[in-house]
């Protein structure tokens, strides 16, 4: 009986969005009278940072500082339609819709500014600081604040735009069955090192090294945060989480989240995160969906590491001490 060490590797591809009846998201953008921009969505920010990312995307497209953008989400009764925040689709689908809406709003904004400055709208550019100026003659400029006031109270224009991003439903080809059920794959690879106690079946994850290829990281700190949390969650899926752990009698099982096992602050593996940025061709500013995929590769990597350590293949999750001991017993019985 001994503590045995093993190392496992796994790589995954993970799609963005899904293929039910088509995968649409809409966005609306409009300016307030004082030149702030409102993004209206019915997509949900459940803590992953959707509001921040949509504000960045809108700000970058219109050419204003991010703090000039307000994002209103999550009223599905009144907001433009969104299929929802799932399938790692939020940034990709809603982001593309916001770009389209923001482009249209920007065009109206430049038209109003052109009337105020008595120039052609195509000769104007934004300075990113809240002003619009004539290309090559930056002294001739107007603040977006004044443009919005003019649009509202003088010109009778609505500085606004509509955005719609749709991945149409893909049907399988009759002859071959080939289809395109998903788009924009993110990729990841994990190496996990574990110790397995072959007397108790207990697994300790010593370290995980993850590489994530996620397109462009629109907000690198938030991406890192998501990946660190996701890596931890992957280990949690691999070793801990189940609503139906084995008990001789189900009455002894867990009844609520208090009895739903996840690793606590004392159970953390040393974690390394490397981000590869290969901008996607169809994502907003090259983004992909890093949401769910970041918690996937740890699972097969840990299973492979357990195999490397004690020579048993556990093909049911989570990889509990009990399942390892049963497999070891079966192996010994030969």
């Amino acid at each position: 009986m001994a503590i045995r060490r093993g190392r496992g590797v796994a790589a995954i591809n993970y799609p963005t969005g899904m293929n039910l009846g088509g995968d649409p998201t809409q966005a609306l953008v409009h300016s307030t009278p004082t030149g702030n921009f409102m993004v209206t969505l019915s997509s949900v920010d459940l803590g992953q940072g959707m509001k921040q990312i949509m504000a960045q995307i809108c700000a970058e497209t219109i050419g204003v500082p991010t703090d000039r953008v307000i994002v209103d989400t999550a009223d599905t009764d009144t907001g433009p339609h969104c299929m929802g925040t799932f399938a790692s689709r939020g940034t990709h689908r809603a982001g593309n819709a916001v770009i389209q809406a923001a482009k249209e709003a920007r065009q109206v904004m430049l038209e109003v500014a052109a009337e105020e400055l008595e120039v052609n709208a195509s000769d104007l550019e934004t300075d990113g600081q809240g002003n619009i100026r004539v290309k090559g003659a930056p002294q001739k400029s107007i603040s977006i604040f004044d443009v919005a006031l003019s649009a509202h109270f003088k010109r009778g224009r609505s500085i606004s735009g509509r955005g719609m991003f749709l991945i149409p439903r893909s049907y399988p080809e009759k002859e071959t069955g080939a289809m395109k059920p998903s788009t924009c794959y993110a990729h990841a690879c994990t190496v996990a090192e574990v110790e397995v106690d072959d007397e108790t079946g207990e697994v300790t994850v010593l370290n995980v090294k993850n590489v994530f290829e996620i397109g462009r990281a629109l907000n690198p700190k938030m991406v890192e945060q998501q990946l660190v949390g996701g890596s931890w969650m992957g280990i949690s899926h691999a070793l801990y989480e189940t609503t139906e752990p084995y008990y001789p009698n189900r009455d002894h099982g867990g009844t609520d989240f208090n009895q739903y096992l996840m690793p606590g602050p004392g159970d953390l593996a040393e974690t390394e995160i490397i981000v590869l940025e290969r901008p996607s061709s169809d994502g907003p500013f090259g983004a992909k969906g890093p949401g769910e995929m970041c918690a996937n590769p740890q699972i097969p990597a840990v299973a492979n590491a357990v195999f490397d350590a004690v020579g048993v293949r556990i093909d049911t999750l989570p990889i509990t001490p009990e399942r390892i001991l049963r497999a070891l017993k079966a192996q010994a019985a030969g």
Binding site: Q225, V228, G229, P265
Partner: peptide, 20 residues
């Protein structure tokens, strides 16, 4: 010490490391 002090608090998002 930090791990011990936080061990009564559950987090579902961060993986604890950023909090520590």
């Amino acid at each position: 010490d930090v791990v011990e002090a936080l061990s009564g608090n559950v987090c579902r998002c961060t993986g604890y490391e950023p909090i520590i």
